[in-house]
Design a protein around this nucleic acid. Structure first.
Lengths: 207, 207, 207, 207
DNA sequence: GATGAATGAGTTTTCATTCAT
DNA sequence: GATGAATGAAAACTCATTCAT
């Protein structure tokens, strides 16, 4: 976060890395891993190919770095949203809103994220899948803990295993974000998710 | 459907096409579009490469044909499940069960289907996305019509636009099929979906 | 040896392989492993690059095949020369003459052979060195056995370990072949080797 | 030789050049010209790449300088050994011993030297071959002169052109140094060369 | 003068597609 | 019609060399 004090050389390096990653995000999210060449990234980012390889050992490493970065950023924001909010009901609402905000500001991130977590990813030989899944699962369990706490505090009825409640919520928010992505005017994410949460909360909330 | 009366030559051709598609399904579903070569398909299917090109103009066309075929088969079964069942509540149940049965019998189909409908698919340059989406959307609207009819017949409260109800249901079944795919013992699909539908139906069903 | 009965397809394949190897021999022997590109070989042999890879898994495999082939051919001829000749003294003479004939007919082979057996070869990651050395050593020991037999039969005095005699003979023939290679007119191989063998045989031969 | 009086700046420069060359010798002798990068040399020598290019115009020039230096050093020692020793027989012995001492103390030099003088060298586009060969030939002729003088003084019989005697001697010493390099315990250089020289000297020496 | 980041030409290799047999 | 050898465009990646700081 605090790169104010970094020596100029280091800052420059970070800026370049950033530019490469941003360009790669643009390209990968539109065309997919296999339809983007290192040449293309280099050209669009206005670097020589060799420079890309100074920053990333190979194409896969670049892709993995990108995915991990986006994934971490994404889950960091969601985690914060949960931590900041007050009671369990508010935490859930915080999560829904933060997720919406995140995606709406970073539509290319969504495509990449969905490609790797929902569709079966065949892009990376090994490891990434596991690494991403760990972050993702970590977050799901954190969300499950919120439901669990809410149940203990009698804020929710225990009508379902908290983990499954979480999976359901995650899946529903994704589905409505996807709809929004297709036609933002016609399918307002927040309104729809809140409507569907009504159904849950009517049941789930105690009062 | 009825190829009993086809001349022998035609039947033979169909049988070969089928073998190619089956082999391709096996390979694509495990390794992904870009990690399977035409050579590999030809070898595993025990045809010459040239023969593959008699049946399909190019690799993309083969993949597209496969996806479309699976998609049609999949939605045909779901459509039938809805058509056969009695009232609207039963139709919804029929859909949930048929979808589960389908996937559990054809796990390779699931991987492919999810890769193309949930993750952003980058495998096909253009067109497939649209074609698949049409079939998919067609089915969603049919399901939405069931909810709508149910609401009209006062079987369900109108707490949500029927289309969104459908999207929610589809998303939830997918999520729990995914869980089941990861660990079939631990995450029984039907039990979980029914539990979550409880929440809906308590609200949604009138009596 | 007998490819008269090979099906036409097989013969054609062998002919192509031969053409690639011959072209590669020409190029490698003049420019060295690292200064010849697969493109260059393909172009000179009038094949597409891909065709080279149908015959050899990669550049190293092509080089290794070439070296092994030349090495085997070379040592086969030398072995035969020894086997055919009469007594031990004649066998040694047979070897010297056959080696000369071999090299004079295949000057590019010499360069390659010397590059791999005498200079330290850094061309092949692993294995070749050992494989070639095995053939080479096998032959040296066969030659040593001739000296040994000659000593037993009192044809030679035992003035030196037979293996060292062999190494000396091998080294001397190489040296004079090298001289011949530089200036064939001025440095006649056979005359020189025979002169130097005089020194040995005067000592070595009993009568 | 006498760099005592060189200004400090000059001495410093020489010292750096030396460090680069020593590092390069280590690397080239183990991995070969094409498997060592300028980067690797720079890193191991703890200089910036640019600095290497201050001292040597390019990679080839660095390699050539190294080879020439080693070659000169090598032949200087051999020349001295010949000059110092007494009569012709002692000079020959002096050469054999000095060559052995040299190589045993500088095994990396041997590998490099053999790679360039015995195997066909493909490392240098042009020129080096000729330059090295000149030094090498110069030495051979000096050695030949010793034989010639010995013959004139009736110390040796003239059984062979002195130049060929020299080539033979050089080749034999190399062969036994190579054996020694492979297994120093098993193949003692000096003992073997002396044994083989016995054969020569019995003939060659007059009394 | 020293540094080492940046460059990009050149290398190996893959694989969809064609077409002579 | 079927075959599969041949093709060559295009990809990933390396490394000698330059030059701004």
């Amino acid at each position: 976060m605090e790169n104010i004090k970094l020596p100029r050389r280091e800052r420059e390096k970070l800026r370049q890395r950033r530019e490469i990653l941003d360009t790669a995000l643009d390209l990968f999210s539109v065309k997919g891993y296999h339809n983007v060449s290192m040449h293309e990234i280099a050209e669009k980012a206005e670097f020589a190919i060799g420079t890309l390889y100074r920053f990333f050992e190979n194409k896969e490493a670049l892709y993995k770095a990108l995915i991990m970065e986006q994934s971490e950023k994404f889950h960091r924001v969601l985690n914060e949203a949960i931590d900041i909010s007050g009671n369990e009901v508010e935490k859930i609402h915080g999560y829904i809103k933060a997720k919406g905000r995140m995606f709406m500001k970073n539509t290319s991130m969504i495509r990449l994220y969905f490609a790797e977590t929902r569709g079966a990813s065949f892009n990376i030989k090994a490891g990434l899948d596991a690494d991403i899944r760990k972050i993702y699962d970590g977050f799901l369990h954190k969300l499950a803990a919120v439901f669990e706490a809410g149940i203990k505090k009698k804020r929710f009825k225990k009508i379902l295993d908290p983990y499954y409640l979480t999976v359901a919520l995650d899946s529903l928010t994704n589905a409505f974000l996807f709809l929004w992505l297709e036609d933002p005017k016609r399918h307002p994410y927040l309104k729809n998710v809140e409507a569907i949460m009504e159904i849950f909360f009517n049941n789930v909330r105690i009062a």
